[in-house]
Design a protein around this nucleic acid. Sequence first.
DNA 1: ACCTGAACACCGTTCAAGT
DNA 2: ACCTGAACACCGTTCAAGT
Lengths: 225, 225
Amino acid sequence: MYGVRVSSSKRPRLQRHDVVEAAVALADEVGIDALSMRTLAQRLDVVPMALYKHVANKDELLDAMVDHVVGEIEPAGPDENWRHGIRSRILSSRAALLRHPWAPGLIETRTQASPVVLDHMEAIAASFRAGGFSVDLTHRAMHAIGSRMWGFTQEVFPTQQPAQDETARDQQFGEWMKRYPRIVEMATEIGGGGGCDAHEEFEFALDLILDGLERIHRESARADG
Amino acid sequence: MYGVRVSSSKRPRLQRHDVVEAAVALADEVGIDALSMRTLAQRLDVVPMALYKHVANKDELLDAMVDHVVGEIEPAGPDENWRHGIRSRILSSRAALLRHPWAPGLIETRTQASPVVLDHMEAIAASFRAGGFSVDLTHRAMHAIGSRMWGFTQEVFPTQQPAQDETARDQQFGEWMKRYPRIVEMATEIGGGGGCDAHEEFEFALDLILDGLERIHRESARADG
DNA sequence: ACCTGAACACCGTTCAAGT
DNA sequence: ACCTGAACACCGTTCAAGT
């Protein structure tokens, strides 16, 4: 009571896993920009330098965070159909990454691929190959899927924050109508809300690419046979 | 002589444009991470605070840098064919962005779209609409293209740096062969070099998407007629 | 041998004191 | 009115001094 903390000697020794887990949780709460070695240490009730026992530097911590998130992907069981297998793996990847909005940005900036990341890519490539894709077409297919293999796409539509007072807002809208009519009609298209179902858009684009790949694969198979 | 500088009063007054241009050049040279308000000020032979006369803060500077790069895109003339028009605009966008490797990452992280950015998107959307695409299909098409509308794709293949000594490298390669056979065969596929033609891959994926859109568009037009 | 506080070399930005 | 140096509140990380 009186807010007196339990003796710190009672606290179990910090493990690398605890550090990474806390970092992921903190990033979820406050965003990746607010995650510093110092704020993380504070959260763990530890001196900043103590973290360096478990990670060589911040970059290694970020790598470990990516691994942690990618590790949450539930691998779908093997599927006879290459397309179903890849599709469900990607959607499961999407589900995992959606829980950690900062993860896509981190995956993109990592320079060294970790084993966990490579496992995911290997699994997708193996599905294509098992489906009869040539090495070359598999390679192209991986590029075509790109970051969508992680279940995210770069959001291209800006989140414009509306002006404060009503007249300024009307005026701004009028200007947009004149200069960006095609963007405005898209933004206002759906139920007037302007928001769009990101998941539906994701599946549409994914299927568009898989359709294309399937077609090319079929044609090249016919040409060979 | 003797390294004595010309009186600083001779230096023409700094303009916003100079600041942005110098920032772009500096980022090209030393990378975006090494670009700080302080290093930029030093490059311009000016006290850091002088920059704040021309940009409100660093974020606004980054916005301006994006605008500068996007402004380098040569808009292709209007094209009868929606597909040719969009394709050439995207390839011209790619050419501009390739000169500034840091630009994609910056475009992705900007939260507010600038007029220059919106102009680019508007032009592409307008091409779809002029080609007879419905508002809804245009919307989906924009999402499907995603960041490819700027001419870049997230690089998904890791740049693994090989081990130092030869035996360690052989051993590492052996492990990879066992664990990531599909990735290894893709990496070694082309001429043994392992490098792939990024531009060819880009065009392949772009055409894959445009093919798909063209097909859907044709089918929906037939259904309507 | 282990731990850690102070210190270093940076950031972006504020602000008051100078001209 | 304009400019700017010092200062503030942060960073990631080093390192030597403490136990």
